[in-house]
Design a protein around this nucleic acid. Structure first.
Length: 515
RNA sequence: GCCAGCAUAGCUCAGUUGGCCAGAGCAGCUGAUUUGUAAUCAGCGGGUCGGGGGUUCGAAUCCCUCUGCUGGCUCCA
């Protein structure tokens, strides 16, 4: 390839008439180029020629092949012709090139570094979660440390939500098929989803819940509602199951069983905007608290070309889309707007965050829905003593615990903020003689609300430090003869080194400062 | 689901023109050592070579199939 590049062949741009182009490719028998030409207008067709190679291309190109100095072919993959899965799949070769070999090397090193942060690797190393072939693909299993981390995240959000007027609820993991027929999910996803569970009773069918909203609609509708109690905000860490395509599964970021930090707000049309703003505020608060400052907000609207894809009236869609656009504008949130990315029942605002390899994932989401209240015939009694339909907001600041933690692991490279870290300290006795003293220190720290462990193996201190560093435990307390006598602790910070000797109370203060 | 590839011990990996009992390092266990800021020493145990089928005198190695994983494509309530 580089040999070809060295020939310094110029890329020559040629404007070609449509007729000439068609006859050229007819002769070559290139059905693909002919199809592309079919969609192009005369006068906008260009060929590029370099050496003995000629091809239809819009361009632009670099001036000549001599500019190409460093090339690496990265991967081979199938790609559907014109992105349509119903059409033929062609083979696509991925490659990268840089003006200098050094830059290519830097790029490859960057990819290596990114791999070290990969949540799938770190998750296994830090014993946060696992997968089991026997349990099934895409079904994450949370290990004790991962559970500790996840519980803290959940508790953080639960408290925040209670402060903001949400009411926690709990609903079952399955529901009768009819529930999802009513919601419209069955018609849309039934075929491609986990199939109904049958019971000994004829005709009785249940579905693993793919969504929490139908259950929450039932909660809203279980008794008459007055306008005086709106907005009603029901929140649940609800575990849902979706049969994602096998080729789509990916670590924690795309799974078949996951827990949404879900809540549904039922409000009057007049309250919609304020509620939307409240959710925006919560979502931003959550992302900032976890150190995500590099996210983008995406407004997903209908595809104007394909109105059949959506359920609900045009008027309601218009209102919902408008509410999102206005609210984001009001808080000055920078957004990109994507047509055709809306859910089938309503437009949404998604917060997108990149993973270690630069792939973008949707985390938090806020969705306006006029459709489900309609389908479930939800009503509240207004001040006029007649029934009105509430508006519904679906929202999940984390999105799902699985995906959020997956991205969080990569974001912080496994070094979690102190308040989330499954182990905040490790006490490392220099010899077995101090094990007992270390246990006492640990008990004191536990009383102070901190968590950690004593490494009482009869290993050299260097070894214990190394192992603790690799476990990414934020603080180490090294205890030998001097500390045992003085009653102090020698503090070492992960990744930074020795912080010196201090009283235990000073160490507790140091940690509390960072919480 | 589709295309391409991968699957050897808990982990990282050796082992291909098919040929004796499948190897290493780390981890684990046992013992010795009692240690001052990123790996103490020695011994031991551990693998249906992802599962199933086939070809062959003989399969980790070749073929088929299933499962899982990886990179894309498509999808994502």
């Amino acid at each position: 390839m580089l040999e070809l590049a060295r020939q310094k062949n110029e890329f020559v741009r040629k404007e070609v008439s449509k007729a000439d182009a068609i006859s050229y490719y007819k002769e070559k028998g290139d059905e693909y180029k002919l199809e592309l030409l079919d969609g192009l207008n005369d006068g906008e067709i260009t060929f590029y020629e370099q050496g003995n190679f000629v091809d239809l291309c819009r361009g632009p190109h670099i001036p000549d092949t001599g500019k190409i100095k460093a090339v690496k072919l990265m991967s081979l993959a199938g790609a559907y012709w014109r992105g349509d899965e119903n059409r033929k799949q062609l083979t696509r070769i991925y490659g990268v090139t840089f003006p200098k070999q050094k830059e290519l090397n830097q790029y490859l090193e960057m990819l290596e570094e990114a791999k070290k942060r990969d949540h799938r690797k770190l998750g296994a190393e830090l014993e946060l979660f696992m997968f089991s072939e026997r349990v099934g693909a895409g079904l994450p299993i949370w290990l004790p440390k991962g559970t500790a981390l996840r519980s803290r995240l959940e508790d953080f959000l639960k408290q925040e939500q209670i402060r903001r007027g949400y009411e926690p609820v709990i609903t079952p993991h399955i529901g009768k098929k009819d529930l999802y027929v009513t919601s419209g999910h069955y018609a849309k996803y039934g075929e491609d989803s986990f199939q109904p569970i049958h019971t000994p009773r004829e005709g009785e069918e249940f579905l693993l819940k793919p969504m929490n909203c139908p259950h929450h609609c039932e909660i809203f509708g279980h008794r008459p509602r007055s306008y005086k109690e709106l907005p009603v905000r029901v929140a649940e860490f609800g575990t849902v199951y979706r049969y994602e395509q096998s080729g789509e599964l990916h670590g924690l970021t795309r799974v078949r069983g996951f827990t949404q930090d879900d809540a549904h707000i039922f409000c009057t049309p007049e309250q919609l905007k304020d509620e939307f703003l409240g959710v925006l505020d919560l979502t931003k608060h959550v992302l900032e608290k976890l150190g995500f400052d590099d996210y983008t907000a995406q407004i997903s609207l209908r595809d104007p070309e394909d109105p059949e894809k959506y359920i609900g009236s045009k008027e309601n869609w218009d209102k919902a889309e408008q509410a999102i656009i206005e609210a984001t504008r009001e808080v000055g949130l920078e957004t990109v707007t994507e047509l055709g990315e809306a859910a089938f029942y309503g437009p949404k605002l998604d917060f997108m965050v990149k993973d270690a390899l630069g792939r973008r994932w949707q985390l938090g989401t806020i969705q306006v829905d006029y459709n489900l209240p309609e389908r479930f015939e939800l009503e509240y009694i207004g001040s006029d003593n007649s029934g009105h339909r509430p508006v519904m907001i679906h929202r999940a600041p984390f999105g799902s615990m699985e995906r959020f933690i997956g991205v969080l692991i990569e974001h912080c490279g496994g070094k979690f903020p102190l308040w989330l870290s499954p182990e905040q300290f490790a006490i490392l006795p220099i010899s077995d003689k101090y094990n007992e003293h270390c246990e006492e220190l640990k008990a004191e720290l536990n009383v102070a609300g901190l968590r950690g462990f004593v490494d009482d193996r009869s290993e050299k201190i260097g070894r214990k430090i190394r192992d603790t560093e690799l476990r990414k435990v934020p603080f180490m307390l090294i205890i030998g003869e001097q500390e045992a006598e003085s009653g102090q602790v020698a503090v070492r910070k992960q990744g930074e080194g020795d912080l010196g000797v201090m009283d235990l109370s000073a160490f507790v203060a140091l940690i509390n400062e960072q919480l």
